[in-house]
């Protein structure tokens, strides 16, 4: 069958949707060198987190008072077995960074997963049903948005007490607002399209329309936004841990490692600097990668 593309040959590049668009976007993304490098860095961190026990040279919680504040290997007093030096309790910083990546990445992913799921459900309901459902959800969103994020999370943590699950909840409590707003807007626009009306004309239920007709068509902007937000969540988690409200010691977390080194910053700069650097590199890589993702996949950023 000699179909489609030919008919509108010169404009073919501009029209169409679905599979080939996805492939074309993927190609565009792959051709973005900087974004691809960033993806590489993110993947590297993920691998570090998964295989931490095999990669880390030492037990991250093993203290050794003889190695208190031992400098990195290339400074006098350092040794190659403890590449990035040791902290005030003589724990290997490299190993703690490697283990700490588990916390950052896990919490980042978990919060975004929870928040995106909740946000999609709320956004779809608000955008599809409109009326009082929309008013209720939108007001809640407005209220949550009016709190400063970190202070809100600190308050919640203070109420719930520390712990991994509580951190995830404290951050997801507000994070869902972001995907919710995106989904609501896209749903409002999509529900007016003829194929949605066609499904209604055929007798489809609201559930079917939301999940089968609308959701697949609005997913890409949501995914793009969510990846960008992972970086945010990682910073927030680090901030909570830095303030002592995050993961409790002795579990290694980049935020608490930075906090640990605060007292020694003049004498032993490496204790705070390396975990800080880890946060910087991962967050930067996620940001650059997701921006590439956005440029490639979000139609609003295409020419």
């Amino acid at each position: 069958m000699t179909s489609a593309a030919l008919n509108s040959a010169p404009v073919a590049a501009a029209s169409g949707a679905g599979q080939t668009i996805f492939r074309r976007n993927l190609r565009q993304f792959a051709s973005n060198r900087l974004a691809m490098a960033s993806v590489g860095i993110v993947v590297l961190f993920v691998l570090l987190a998964i295989f931490a026990p095999f990669i880390a040279p030492h037990d991250p919680n093993e203290t050794d008072l003889f190695r208190r504040l031992q400098p990195p290997a290339w400074q006098t007093g350092g040794e190659w077995a403890y590449l990035l030096g040791c902290d005030a309790l003589g724990r290997d910083i490299l190993s703690r960074i490697i283990y700490g990546s588990r916390i950052s990445i896990f919490i980042g992913a978990a919060v975004i997963f929870v928040a995106t799921t909740v946000g999609i459900a709320a956004g779809l309901a608000a955008g599809y049903f409109r009326g009082w459902v929309d008013v209720a959800i939108s007001r809640l969103v407005d209220i949550l948005l009016s709190f400063p994020y970190l202070i809100f999370a600190i308050g919640l943590m203070a109420m719930m007490g520390p712990g991994l699950v509580n951190i995830i909840l404290a951050l997801a409590y507000k994070e869902w607002v972001i995907p919710c707003r995106v989904v609501r807007g896209e749903t409002l626009a999509t529900r007016e399209l003829e194929y949605v009306e066609a499904a209604r004309a055929l007798g489809a239920s609201s559930g079917h329309i939301m999940v089968k007709e609308i959701l697949p068509n609005i997913l890409s902007p949501v995914i793009v936004v969510s990846t960008i937000r992972i970086a945010h969540v990682i910073i927030l988690e680090a901030s909570l841990s830095f303030l002592g409200l995050g993961v409790q010691p002795p579990t290694a977390s980049w935020g608490s490692m930075v906090a640990d080194g605060r007292a020694h910053i003049l004498g032993a700069w490496w204790v705070s600097t390396f975990p800080g650097l880890a946060i910087l590199v991962l967050v930067l890589a996620i940001n650059v990668a997701s921006q590439g993702l956005r440029d490639a996949f979000d139609p609003r950023f295409q020419e």
């Binding site: 949707a17 399209l193 003829e194 194929y195 009306e197 066609a198 004309a201 007709e213 068509n217």
Partner: peptide, 19 residues
Amino acid sequence: RRRMQIVFQDPYASLNPRS
């Protein structure tokens, strides 16, 4: 709805691009 149907004007907008 099974007995009353509609054919739409816009052949581009009336079909779900992801189905």
